[in-house]
Computed example of a mutant assay.
Amino acid sequence: MLRFSKFAAAASVAVSVMMGAASAQTVLRSSDTHPDGYPTVEAVKHFGELIKERTEGRYEVEVYHSAQLGQEADTIEQVRSGVIDLNRVSMAPWNSLVPATLIPSLPYLFRSPEHARNVMSGPIGEEIAKGFDQHGVVLLAFYDGGARSFYNSKKPINTLEDMKGLKFRVIQSDVFVDMVAALGASATPMPYGEVYSAIETGVIDGAENNFPSYESAKHFEVAKNFSLDEHTIVPEVFVMSKASWDKLTPEDQEIFKQAARDSMEKQWELWDARVAESRKIVEAAGSQITTPDKQPFIDAMKPVYDKYVNTPELQDLVKRIQETEG
C-alpha cells in the first residue's frame, strides 16, 4: 500500500508538471484575408514555425486565413484593441492613421518590386514602422504586396483615354480614390470579398490588384481585360498587437523580430514564384494582358503628388526613396 502511495504521488507530480508546461504555452491568433496557400499566409505560418522552434514551444501561432476573423478594416481594429494578436494587411488602410504610409502608397513611386523591397527592408522602412507604435500595434515586417494593375470586364486598356468612364473598386484609401479620379475613371471603395459579385452584377466594371490576387479570388472569371500598368507597389504590413507584444520578455521580443525578418525573406521567395504561376493560369483561362505606355499615366499623377506630398518632410522622404538603389 505504501509502495502504491509513492507511485501515485510521483504520478501526480508528473501530471502537475505536464499540466504546468501545457498552460505555459501561449497560442497567438493571426489574421489574413487571403486564402490558404497564398504567399502572405504561408509566410506567417513560417513565422509561427520559427517562433515555436526558437521559444522551445512556449509560443505557437494559429493563422486564420480567408478572412475568417473579418475583412481588413475589422481586423485592424481587432489587433489594435488586442482582440487578436497578429495581423497581415495592406499598408493602404493605415494611411489615415500613420501619415508616412501614404508615401509608399503613391502611384508609380517604386521602379520595381526589388526597389520596393530594398526601401522597405532598410532604414526608411524602420522609420515608417515607428509611426505604428502609437496606434496599438508593433510593425514586425513589410511583405511584398506586388505590383497592382487595373482589370475590367468592358475593354482592354491601352491608353489613358481608355480609362474614362470606367468604375473600379479600390481599397479604402484616399490616395487610391484620387489616383483613379486623376486617370479619368471612378473609384468605389469596398471590401475585397465583395469584388467578384460586384463585377459580375455590373455594380463596378473592374478593380485593381496584383496577379496572385486577381487569380486566387477568381476575378479573372468576370474581368478578362488586365492592363499591366503597375501603378502601385504597396507593401503589406505584418503587425502585432501592442498588448500582446508587451507581454513578451525582451529576449522573446528579439526572437519575434528576427523570425519576422526571416519570414519576410521567405515571403519574397514565395511571392515571385506565385506571380509567375498566377499569370500563367489567367492567360490560359483567356485573360487579355495589355501593357500601356506608362508615361501619360505617370504625368496624370501630378495633382495626387501635390495633394499628399505637401510638407518638406514628406518631399524629402519621396526623394530618399527615389534615390535608393533597386
Score class of each variant (00 low, 15 high):
68 Q>R: 15
68 Q>K: 15
71 Q>V: 13
72 E>K: 10
73 A>R: 11
73 A>V: 01
77 E>M: 07
78 Q>F: 10
81 S>C: 10
82 G>H: 11
83 V>K: 14
84 I>D: 02
86 L>V: 08
88 R>Q: 07
89 V>K: 03
91 M>W: 05
92 A>T: 14
93 P>S: 12
94 W>E: 10
95 N>I: 00
96 S>D: 15
98 V>I: 13
101 T>W: 08
102 L>S: 11
102 L>H: 02
103 I>A: 01
106 L>D: 11
106 L>T: 07
106 L>R: 08
112 S>F: 12
113 P>E: 02
114 E>M: 00
115 H>I: 01
116 A>E: 05
117 R>T: 08
118 N>Q: 14
118 N>H: 02
119 V>D: 00
119 V>R: 03
119 V>Y: 03
119 V>K: 07
122 G>C: 04
122 G>Q: 01
123 P>A: 07
124 I>S: 01
124 I>R: 03
125 G>I: 11
127 E>A: 11
128 I>Q: 07
128 I>H: 04
132 F>L: 00
134 Q>I: 07
135 H>M: 08
135 H>K: 05
139 L>G: 02
140 L>F: 07
142 F>R: 01
142 F>C: 03
144 D>N: 14
144 D>K: 05
144 D>W: 02
146 G>H: 05
146 G>V: 06
147 A>R: 06
148 R>Q: 13
149 S>V: 15
150 F>D: 02
150 F>M: 09
152 N>L: 03
152 N>Y: 04
153 S>L: 11
153 S>T: 11
154 K>P: 05
154 K>N: 04
156 P>G: 04
156 P>M: 10
157 I>M: 04
158 N>C: 03
159 T>Y: 08
161 E>P: 00
162 D>P: 02
170 V>G: 10
171 I>A: 12
171 I>N: 01
171 I>C: 00
173 S>W: 06
175 V>Y: 01
181 A>I: 07
184 G>R: 13
186 S>N: 14
186 S>W: 00
187 A>S: 13
187 A>M: 13
189 P>V: 09
189 P>D: 02
191 P>T: 06
192 Y>R: 08
194 E>K: 15
196 Y>H: 14
197 S>T: 15
197 S>I: 05
199 I>W: 01
200 E>D: 14
